[in-house]
């Protein structure tokens, strides 16, 4: 699927199969939150990001209303995908909101702020995917962090 924020003129490409596997993982942890990082690459001009996969955390803590992603072994695994023939890099995060709307919370906004501020992070505008999950449905919503706030995307 392709998503766009028309105001910023930025797009996201993500495979439907990848989306459904992310949903499957999220559902396994339902009704607790869960998440991971998104990897992929930017197209020339950096207005389009291709999300190619997710890395699930080896360590994490979660409850129905919070999720803390650890970083155990993350560096090694990111290195591995960076050294592939087509290098993939860290482009953002995903997590679930069980029984709630896929709208960033204050904590989520703060999380993005801290990620961008981290010395080990070279991207300025991470993507955040939130899956609003309930027993029957899954509502995904993509955001990008820019100008100290989040911008949402619509499907094309």
């Amino acid at each position: 699927m392709i998503l766009i924020n028309r105001e910023l003129d930025l797009t996201i490409n993500i495979d439907d199969a990848l989306m459904s596997s992310i949903e499957t993982v999220g559902r396994e942890h339902y009704p607790k939150e869960f998440g991971g990082i998104l990897i992929g690459y930017y197209m020339e001009g950096q207005q389009q990001v291709i999300i190619t996969g997710t890395l699930l955390p080896d360590d994490y803590r979660s409850s129905p209303s919070s999720f803390e992603r650890g970083d155990k072994g993350l560096k090694e695994r990111l290195k591995a995908v960076y050294e592939e023939e087509k290098p993939k890099i860290y482009v953002g995060e995903w997590h679930t909101h069980p029984n709630a709307a896929p709208i960033p919370s204050y904590t989520d906004l703060n999380a993005l702020k801290e990620i961008v501020a981290s010395d080990a992070v070279s991207i300025d505008h991470p993507i955040m995917l939130i899956l609003g999950l309930d027993r029957k449905k899954c509502k995904p919503a993509f955001y990008v962090y820019m100008n100290k706030r989040t911008y949402s995307y619509e499907n094309i």
């Binding site: 919370s105 204050y106 904590t107 100290k148 706030r149």
Partner: peptide, 13 residues
């Protein structure tokens, strides 16, 4: 524009 020092009860929701 960005609030600091908000009151987060538990869970930060």
């Amino acid at each position: 524009e960005v609030e600091e020092d908000l009151y987060n009860p538990t869970g930060c929701w």
